[in-house]
Design a protein around this nucleic acid. Structure first.
Ligand SMILES: [Zn+2]
Ligand SMILES: [Zn+2]
Ligand SMILES: [Zn+2]
Ligand SMILES: [Zn+2]
Lengths: 140, 140
DNA sequence: TTGATATTGAGACACAGTATCAATATCAAG
DNA sequence: CTTGATATTGATACTGTGTCTCAATATCAA
């Protein structure tokens, strides 16, 4: 299912309503490659003809995340970033402390060991976040 | 070296000065089992006879973290928590989304795979943070 | 004792995000 | 189409968490 369909079904399931603000934001988010944050999206939404309030931008971001249309990541320093990708698979992040660039990676072995350790602790994992800080190749 | 010694040597190395505020905070932090946050420490410091300003509490927490006396962890939602432990080894966290309890764990295999993937990406790791969210045994 | 400088407290400020609430948009039912 | 219930919005106040500023003070070496 594409993201418009996901939004539609989420809205129907929850008894919510279709609004132009949500449609506008979805179209803009679709076109963003990589990561974005709330304030950046806010200014991007209001750059041209469209206009959505700050409160609604935050509200809608939360809604999209709940609907699975975007994914939230919390970086060091408390910075929250999002990325579009209903079809995107899970991945973790490496962040360069010098240039701030974000790299994505995924390691099946790490994932497997996480599941194992949760089993051992009788902890029912619902999600996880791994962030590696360091210095990227171009900053060395 | 114990934490008082660590503070002393850090202060000397940086050309800083001994203050009663730092001594008071260190004594209190030593007695805190598990995690604490800045606001909680602030009220704990000012509960009785002692008195340290909000600004100094934040400043001193940062100083202690730089000196290696306490360790900072950034949790989901941007919450920053600290824990006393100069002799404590690296560990990661599991956090229960129902009761908020924090569990510590350490898995050598996960650590090893992290180093491997960093080598592969020519990324020079300086630190990392793994947080597993889920439901703990007593909340199931 | 004195002078240089690090530190403090108080409060202003910054930033990200949330709560409030009246006005408005949506939508199903009639 | 009209109506009514209710979800949504924008404006703005507010909150939490932390930083900055700066004058007053504490520390420490000479
Ligand atoms: Zn992962
Ligand atoms: Zn870099
Ligand atoms: Zn680790
Ligand atoms: Zn629990």
């Amino acid at each position: 299912m594409d993201s418009s369909g996901m939004l539609k079904s989420y809205i129907e399931k929850k008894g919510l309503k279709k609004t132009s603000e949500r449609a506008v934001m979805l179209e803009i988010i679709k076109k963003i490659p990589g990561h974005f944050d709330a304030e950046g999206l806010l200014s991007q939404v209001n750059r041209n003809n469209t206009k959505v309030s700050r409160a609604s931008v935050y509200r809608t971001i939360k809604l999209f995340a709940e609907a699975g249309i975007i994914k939230e990541s919390l970086l060091r320093g408390g910075r929250k970033v999002y990325e579009y990708g209903p079809e995107k698979t899970h991945h973790d992040h490496m962040i360069c402390v010098k240039c701030g660039k974000l790299f994505e990676f995924s390691d099946p072995m790490i994932e497997k060991h996480q599941e194992e350790i949760c089993r051992k602790h009788r902890f029912q994992m619902t999600g996880h976040k791994l962030e590696i800080q360091g210095i990227c190749n171009s900053c060395k």
